[in-house]
């Protein structure tokens, strides 16, 4: 089981593959939506709730796959650790990171959504699904914050940690 940890620790040692992820995200990201419509609250209560008291934030002991990335524009950082079994089922998953409410709350929401699911479910989960999961409509720049954890989890399934096959 994971142990919870407040802040970012070993992120610096993780390989950054920002460039690769960015190209992919820009291809997959849905068309820019217009400005948030009338008074759509970006910071709904359940989002702030995820931010303040996140789901599975910390470090995972039995990690098999991990990836981290940052949003160079604003310095948001997210790292995700996965424990996958031989059938590709997600045994457990944890994230850590630093950044704005949207980047951190969306990571928490994504992990909660993927808990108990499979690698295939992650692969099937599109950028659009991620934005829908977040809820309030985001401008293109804020979509980058929201999609950071989504990019990271997509990268994590292809990034076995040392000592794993």
């Amino acid at each position: 089981m994971g142990r919870r940890r407040g802040r970012l620790g070993s992120l610096a040692s993780v390989r950054w593959t920002a460039a690769a992820c960015l190209t992919r995200a820009s291809k997959l990201a849905p068309r820019a939506s217009p400005m948030p419509s009338d008074e759509e609250e970006l910071y709904q209560d359940h989002i702030l709730d995820h931010y303040e008291d996140p789901f599975h934030r910390g470090h995972l002991d039995g990690v098999t796959h991990a990836h981290a990335d940052k949003n160079p524009l604003c310095g948001d950082v997210v790292k995700i650790e996965l424990q996958l079994d031989d059938e590709g089922k997600i045994v457990d998953l944890y994230f850590d990171g630093e950044g704005c409410v949207i980047s951190q709350a969306s990571a928490s929401m994504l992990l909660e959504e993927m808990y108990g699911k499979t690698v295939d479910d992650i692969k099937m989960f599109s950028a659009e699904d991620m934005l829908k999961l977040y809820g309030p409509r985001l401008t293109p720049n804020r979509q980058k914050c929201c999609l950071l954890s989504w990019k990271v989890i997509q990268g994590a399934i292809h990034s076995p940690v040392d000592g794993e096959k």
Binding site: L42, G99, R142
Partner: peptide, 29 residues
């Protein structure tokens, strides 16, 4: 509180345009 939150809420609720981020001075930050 991250600067994004300031810029976002200042814009959405106050109509105030400010810059959030590193303003092209990453080493300084």
């Amino acid at each position: 509180i991250h600067s994004h939150e300031f810029a976002q809420v200042l814009n959405d609720k106050f109509g105030v345009a400010v810059r959030a981020g590193h303003h092209c001075t990453q080493p300084l930050h």
